[in-house]
Design a protein around this nucleic acid. Structure first.
Lengths: 239, 239
DNA sequence: GCGATATTTGAACAAGTTGACAAGAGTTTT
DNA sequence: AAAACTCTTGTCAACTTGTTCAAATATCGC
């Protein structure tokens, strides 16, 4: 754990002799450090906005190590999702399980909304994983994500579960209403997660996504109201 | 206008003599063609995902022309916003003006929602400018947009106008509620505009952002309900 | 027609890109 | 201790990046 400021080799001359900590060997630790650096860089600049060199520089490892451990730049990118996605999926599933037990309709919908929003909003305000939140937000608006298939692979299953829960909570709604409701929820969440200060700027500092509690309160209220009270004018035509 | 398939110089041998249309000169036309190509490419791959050469190739002009006309890659990018932004801002302003005249509260909120959503949703389904919709969606989730200041410059003013209108329509709401409501509206809109098929995929084809009318009906209903019925549990603490 | 100006062109630039390699260093197994 | 293994390293070649340049060509005012 306490391996913070060793491996300062490039910054000093060629005094290979003194090596207080002789270039520690620990593949898992190295992988983790690269992943951490990659998360930060990808979040800040996007997949195409960073070079593996920048990531290697931040992780303080030679470039070649990235290809050794992750195969390619995209391999590294996918590894981030493999690491983080289960975390929030599990939290949502757990939240849905709780909602399932709630008998009262309004309360049930609110719990479903919370099950979806809260894990991500919490992640966004957690320093360690806030970067992943921004990567995720970017990924959904990136056409290349289709090629990468990373959203489809990791996030589609939980999406179906959420919509099933919504449908059971509100059986009177059409499939279209359920779907658009879910998409709206995602949109609000993703937009908030990706925010880089515009919300705070526009509100004169009154609204701050960093304030996890207040943000969750507002967004949950908004989406609960949206799901419970929205009816489309003409749900007639189907095909 | 009918300058489609001339300038085929590279694809053929060095028969400079025949030049049916001897390399037409028209700065405005050239600029427009570069802008069009850039819009498509930026929408598909993002600012960092495209090279100026790809854009030049699509526009079928030499690379150097891009720098000549737009100064730099970023200059070209900004030129897209300078061309498109006024278009949708004007539409929103007009919509707000109509809403202002409506006396009834619920109807007024609905008209404000429509004033915000409809211009963009329409743009998204218009082939010519659907690319700009995707660029816009990407820009709001790109941290570099802060450097570029393009959102702030072109879109913040209209945001304030919308929030003012909302506040006047619902004077009982707190500033936080108005702000989060507006942000939610934007989030839903942007997410839908940026969609690359996930909505259709998840809904089994039942929801399609290309279907402008149905999409607008659902999203307007959702945001109208959200704005009219959402109340935060604890709007007590302020500072 | 002539000259000034605006536009277009291909080539070149320096800087940075990715992925690959052989060789080295550390750890584990024999 | 020696061999086999995993992990690390600096360097390399091939290529792309955004931008600039001088020269060529077209357009317009006179």
């Amino acid at each position: 754990m306490a391996t913070g400021m060793s491996r300062s080799k490039k910054s000093q001359q060629d005094q290979k002799i003194i090596t207080v900590e002789p270039t520690q060997r620990n593949a898992a630790h190295t992988r983790a450090r690269i992943l951490g650096a990659a998360e930060t860089e990808f979040a800040d600049h996007g997949f195409d906005g960073v070079s593996v060199r920048q990531i290697a520089l931040r992780a303080d490892v030679p470039v070649a190590l990235i290809n050794y451990h992750f195969g390619s730049k995209e391999g590294l990118y996918r590894a981030i999702f493999e690491m983080r996605a289960p975390m929030i999926v599990d939290q949502r599933v757990a939240g849905l399980r709780l909602a399932e037990m709630e008998p009262e309709r309004e309360r049930k919908v609110e719990m479903i909304v919370k099950a979806v929003l809260v894990p991500n909003l919490h992640m966004r305000s957690t320093e360690k994983s806030s970067n992943y939140a921004r990567i995720l937000a970017r990924e959904v608006s990136d056409p290349k994500s289709l090629e990468r298939k990373v959203i489809e692979e990791y996030l589609d299953p939980i999406a179906y579960k959420v919509m099933d829960a919504l449908q059971r909570a509100m059986p009177d709604r059409s499939i279209e209403e359920i779907n658009w409701g879910y998409q709206a929820m995602l949109g609000v969440m993703v937009y908030t997660m990706a925010d880089m200060g515009r919300i705070s700027r526009l509100s004169g500092g009154r609204c701050d996504p960093e304030d996890e509690i207040a943000t969750a309160n507002h967004l949950v209220a908004i989406m609960k109201a949206a799901l419970l009270h929205a009816r489309v004018p003409t749900p007639i035509q189907d095909e």
